[in-house]
Amino acid sequence: MYAFVTFLAGLLFGLGLAISEMTNPAVVIGFLDIFGDWNPSLIAVMGGAISVGMLGYWIKNKRFSPIMSKEWHVPNLKHIDRKLLIGAGLFGIGWGLSGYCPGPGLTALTNNPMEGIYFVGALIIGSAIHHFQNVLFRK
């Protein structure tokens, strides 16, 4: 059941990205191009997602535990550090270059495979560099 819920969540999330056209990097770049021919669609996507997402947290706060798990696994970090700022900064540069963030990049494997293979290959290598950097030089 837990496995089915996980698959279903992935499926619905992917459908949401597809319906809102966030799977298309041309649409995403159009949104980021605020000094050019600006397309405001991503604000509608984020607004829709965050408003229903807030409802989810409101329900969470009324419950002792999730339905299928003993405890909540929601991140609880509060501090703003250099890693957060540099990481988010680098991510934004990469996102602006191609219009792919991780979800739409993965769906490009089937939507636009010639591009998807290069992007996802590099996405995996980038994640791996961070992973092995942490393993080798544990702070």
């Binding site: 540099i86 900064g89 540069i93 191609s98 963030c101 290069y118 290598i125 560099i129």
Partner: peptide
Amino acid sequence: ISGLLVGYGTRLGG
């Protein structure tokens, strides 16, 4: 280049 920056940056920034 985009994939490398997105992969590394999202992990570093959590």
